[in-house]
Every structure is written in C-alpha cells, then in structure tokens.
Design a protein around this nucleic acid. Structure first.
Lengths: 351, 351
DNA sequence: TTGTATGCGTTATCAC
DNA sequence: GTGATAACGCATACAA
C-alpha cells in the first residue's frame, strides 16, 4: 500500500528520502526486521535478509542520521578541534586520524578554533551537542569547566600533540619540552651562546610554552643564563616569522641562532635572512619545528624536529575507538620526536 | 515534579544531558515555550523569556542535535568534500568558507575523498544522510547519478575551484583553462618551444585536464604543435614532482620549460633540479599553479597562477546560504586568477 | 502570549 | 525469526 501523501507534503522543501518503513513495505516485512537486517544481520533469516537488502538497494535507502542518533544515542561520529586548518601543521596527523576512523566506519567532524580558547570551548560544546561520540583535542591547556563538561557527559577524549606523564588525562604525543631541549643542545654544542626564539603566543598553548622551556633547560644545563633567551611572540605565518627575524637581527648583540617554534615561522625567518643578505648558516643559524613539507623545500633545508604526525593521528583514533567500547586506557602514550639535521644549522660564527 | 528515573538508567553510558523538558520544568513553563524562546525569542514575553534563559544557563542546556534535526528537518550544517586535506591547496579556501558559515551560525562538516570518485560519492551520500543542508563540491566531474541524487533530494550545492559558463550547474571559481593558457603564453613568449607538463591524474579531474588544455591552446595559438606537449601524470606530492621532473630531464630533446599542475609538484621539480645541478631558470624554467605559501618560499620563487582562494570560499558560502533560503542564483560567478611572475621562469636557453 | 498534542525515523524491548 | 510498540528530544500547527 502506498503511503498517504502527507498533509505537509506541499510545504516540504525536499523530496522525502525513503525511510525504514518504505523499505519494510516493499520487502513485505516490519520495520523492526529491516532495522535488524542492517544492524544485526545475523539475527535474521537469510532469505528475508536478501529480500530486504534488495529493497534497500532499489530504493536507495540510507538511514536518517538524526533519527538514528536519537534512538541509538550514538552517532558513529568523532570530532576533532584543531587550532587551525590554514597551515599544514595539523593536516597530516588529522589525515591519519581520519583514515583510521573511516576504516572503522566512523565519520570525522573537524572544527578549528583559531587558537582562541573561547572559540574552542564553543566548538567542543557544539560537537558534543551534535552527538560526537568522542573527541580529539590538541594540547592540555583549557579551562577546567571544559573538562568538567566532558567528564559530566562522559564523552571520551584524547589529548594529542603533547605528552606529559604526570597528567591524569589520557594523551598521545611527544614531549615538546624534551624534543626542543634536544635540538637546543645541538645548537649549543655548535658554539652558539646568543640564542633567540620566535614562537607563537605561549599563553593557552602548552606546546609552545614547553618548547620554550626546553630551550631554557638546555641553556641552563650548559651554563648559559636561561634569562638570556630572547623571545619574540607572533602568530603563525610566514610574514610574521620574517618580521620577527628582522627585529631580532636589529638587537645587540645579535643572536647567532634563531630557533623557531615551528617550520612556518622558520621559513619566514629564512626568507628575511635572504632579503637581508645574511648567509644561513654562515652568519646565523635558523631551526624549525614539526618537519612539515616546507622544511625540506626551503633553501637551505631546515634543521628541525620531526614530529610523529601520522602515528599520533592513528594512535589517537585507536585510543578513542577503544574508549567508545568501554576500554579505558590506563596510561598515556609517548611517541618519539627526533631532531632532523639539515643545512640551516651550522657552527656559531666567530665574533 | 522530578522526572522518573528511566528503567534503562543504569545501562546508560553517559549522564543524561538536560532536555527541553528539564528546562521547561525548572522555568515553570511548557516545552513549547522554551523551544520558542530559543528559536523565536520575539514571540515570547520578556519576563518569561528571561526566566527560561536563566534556566537554560544554570542547567547548561544544549539542544540535542539528532532530535532537532529530526523535528525541524534541517541541521544548520553544511558539508564540503575536498580531494585532500594533506596539502595546502584547499586549506585557505576552506578556511574562508568556514569563517563565513560560522558567522551565520552554521557548522561545517568536512570530508576528503582522496581524489577517488567512488569515495567522493560515498562521502556525498553520507553528508546528505547526516542532514547536511547544503554542499560544497570541487570541480564538475562526477557521475550523473550523483547529481541526480542531489537534485532528487533537493540539496543545494555549489561547485568551486572551477568556472565554466556553459554549465547549468551553479559554480563559483575561475577558468582553469584560460588561466593556464595565460601562463603558457608567457612561457612561450620567452622563447620556449619544448614544453612539458607535470600534472595530477586528469581523469575525473576537470581542473587538471582544463589546465592541460590551456597549455595546448597557447601552443596552437603560437604555431607549436599541441601534440608536442610532453605530459607526466603523477599524484600530488613533492617527491612525485621530483621524480617526474627527473624522468622529463632524461628525455630528448629536453624541455626548456616544465609547467606543473600545482605548486606542490613544482616544488618537487625545483628540488630535483637542484639535485641535478640544473640552474632554474637558466637551464630550465619551472612554473606552478595555485600560489600557495610554498610558492614564495622556494628558491627560486615560483612563477605561478594566483588562485582566488578566499573569494571562492567566502563566495561559495554566500551562495549556499542564499540557496538555503530559497534564493536560487541564476548564474555562476567567475573570479579572476592571474599569473604571478617570480624567478623560476626565464627566457629559453639557447640550444 | 502560552500550552497541548502530534509527528519526525530509528532502535530496542517485548511478546509471539 | 519476526512483528508490535514504546521511547528518544524537539518543533510546530492548533487550541486556548
């Protein structure tokens, strides 16, 4: 029997999609059977199953997401909030995250917070309201009420791009402080004493602040006053990196090594060095962080810290998938980041 | 009166979020009033409105997405399917798209298809099933049934990253063929006759194939046999660009100009040229397409085609927003892409 | 201006 | 193995 045309039919903006009921009618079974057929095929007789699937195909049926979410209380959707989509810093990790989720039949929702805590909180609440079953977050730094909210709602989440073993929250990533310290030690061992840092804003950004501390750790370890580290904070763009570098080069004494919080800033610094006719690394060394594509492309190629992007993404997906099935991981996962020596770092020039 | 504890309570994975009814009870009104308060505040008395909003705040109420979608038949969500998130080609345009949507209270869902038509179709159906109110698509090339599906469901969509005025489907973008032709004419006017192209796979990719045709247009226009264009197809990565370049340089006669379908491939070609000790543009000229960040960073800086990323993103958002409100645009929008001359293109070397 | 009642398309719990 | 049917949380036409 055909479905009665709905009273509201003429007001409907769109042609109604086939529903479970349409499929049920066509296959001559109940909606319950169709539902089982789709979610629990083993509990249905083979012959009816085939009949149902046939109807599903010819009707082009696809479940209505809202209804499914409402009834099942789960959406098969995970969310990720990243600081920015503009540069490639998070792209590779996110791609790996996505791939792993897709393999497990779950959809990824991505939101970007523009490095703004308020916006991030809003995005988090938004994704949860939209039924995200689990969340990927970058870094630990956020207001307590955000974590309370997540815990109240029992929404699984993992923190990535950082690893700190004293944290109770589950994270998968690397130790930014240790990694940067490692790089800084290389720099210092090449004779550099006047060191500068170009970084993004450190407030509300634990990756940035830990990287900075890593440098100071290395300095202290080698008898250099950590207070002597000159720091310029600026947003993550190439031209900002260039400007920051220019201002540093005007200071006295000039740094012989400019470490950058990431490769984008470093690329800007490199560009500016060329514009100022400074030889890198002859006159000044420059290093980056992240090891994204541009690090290999610039001239000279950037000495930087290789970050395990894909491992983080895939690992985060695995953790979240497990958590959704009730397996609470007992500890965070530390991945290795390692220094990649290329051409932009050399011995300190003689004074 | 308190809500009765649900039978299933103990099985619930999560603490239930406050519902409209909770808010209604607390504010001493009906759910209808609360709903109006949130969606149509003007239709509610000021005093009750304040009482309701107060309750909303203290309870931390947020609407349940699934229920809302189910009841309202709209989600305030738009979707975008892009070929890849890995490189920066689509990032900036997408960011602009996102920003404009956010300003209008709508959420963006992003999916990436890995340049695979089947996957793209699946993503499109998925986003529609999830209730996407409108869709952003890249390029025209896709199976007819996909467009039928979209039209059946009356889901508004716009095509970007391309513009073709003979197309009945609404698009906002630039003419890839014309833009590349323009660049190729510059190349030819510099004396180049042996031209090669490194491009991504052209099948199912109208941007890539149009760019290729643009070169051939220019060649024909200047009396060069378009069949003489050597073409290497390879995926969009730096190392693929490098490999393709290497193989081209082994051919005889060697091309004096290698045009690339995008900046990423061009960066790879540049890298390989350096490795082969070829001077660019002295021995060979190399050009890109897109004008993403790396174009300015590489040495020599890339001559490329500047694509109006942000305008496309923002414009697409505007179009879609209008379409959702029933304003069907009558024509597509053509934006300008222009050649950016930098250092990687020079006169053809004497033979 | 506010409340009542119904429907949205699934899932899941029962009986059969 | 299968079919009724009661939630699920919200929007909205309609009544008051």
């Amino acid at each position: 029997m055909e479905k009665q045309p709905d009273r509201a039919e003429k007001y409907r903006r769109s042609v109604p999609s086939p529903t479970l009921e349409d499929v049920a009618t066509r296959a001559g079974v109940s909606t319950a059977t169709v539902s089982r057929c789709l979610n629990n095929p083993s509990k249905v007789a083979k012959t009816t199953r085939e009949r149902v699937l046939e109807a599903v195909r010819t009707l082009g049926y696809a479940p209505n997401f809202g209804a499914q979410a409402l009834a099942a209380k789960r959406t098969n959707t995970f969310g990720a909030i990243i600081p920015t989509m503009e540069n490639a810093i998070f792209a590779r990790g996110l791609q790996a995250f996505q791939e792993e989720l897709q393999r497990n039949g779950i959809t990824l929702l991505v939101a970007s917070s523009s490095y703004t805590p308020e916006l991030e909180e809003q995005q988090i609440r938004g994704l949860v309201a939209r039924g995200a079953d689990a969340l990927l977050l970058i870094g630990h730094a956020r207001a307590p009420q955000v974590y309370e909210f997540l815990d109240d709602r029992q929404v699984p989440y993992v923190i990535t791009w950082t690893y700190e073993d004293f944290q109770s929250r589950i994270s998968i990533g690397f130790d930014n402080r240790k990694a940067m310290k490692c790089l800084a030690e290389r720099v210092i061992s090449l004779g550099h004493r006047n060191i500068a840092l170009i970084t993004s804003q450190r407030k509300d950004n634990d990756r940035a602040s830990h990287r900075c501390e890593g440098i100071q750790d290395a300095m202290a370890l080698h008898g250099i006053d950590p207070e002597g580290l000159r720091i310029v904070e600026t947003p993550y763009t190439i031209s900002n990196g260039a400007d920051a570098f220019a201002s540093l080069m005007e200071s006295d004494p000039r740094p012989t090594a400019v470490l950058c919080g990431n490769d984008v800033l470093a690329a800007g610094a490199l560009l500016q060095a060329r514009k100022m006719n400074l030889d890198v690394p002859g006159d000044v060394s420059i290093t980056g962080f992240d090891d994204i594509e541009i690090a290999q492309i610039v001239t000279p190629a950037l000495t930087t810290v290789h970050v395990p992007h894909r491992e983080m993404g895939k690992g985060a997906a695995r953790l979240l998938l497990g958590m959704r099935n009730g397996q609470m991981p007992t500890s965070s996962t530390e991945l290795e980041a390692h220094v990649v020596l290329r051409d932009s770092l050399g011995p300190a020039p003689r004074m």
